[in-house]
């Protein structure tokens, strides 16, 4: 299973006056790894769940923004 986010460590200059951002992330949703959506994928049980997740198929769900923020907080 492919991860939803990828992380990298940007270069931090010693002369940078701002608080350094040590780890950054970008979203890699499942559709990047899915060629052509096959028919008959399992769906969310209720329309409300689908609405809350933003897709009808759990396999295509992609959280945003990054729930576990790498870097400063976690």
């Amino acid at each position: 299973m492919h991860s939803q986010f990828k992380y990298w460590k940007p270069y931090v200059s010693p002369y940078d006056p701002c608080k350094p951002i040590r780890v950054k992330s970008y979203s890699t949703p499942p559709q990047l790894y899915m060629n052509f959506q096959p028919p008959g994928l399992p769906q969310f049980q209720s329309p409300k769940q689908a609405l809350m997740h933003g897709t009808l198929w759990p396999q295509l769900y992609s959280p945003y923004p990054d729930p576990h923020k790498r870097g400063e907080k976690s």
């Binding site: 959506q37 609405l51 897709t55 009808l56």
Partner: peptide
Amino acid sequence: EELQAIDFVIVELNLY
């Protein structure tokens, strides 16, 4: 809310 949810399902299915 129910209408919003069912219309979302319709949009998803339509695009699919």
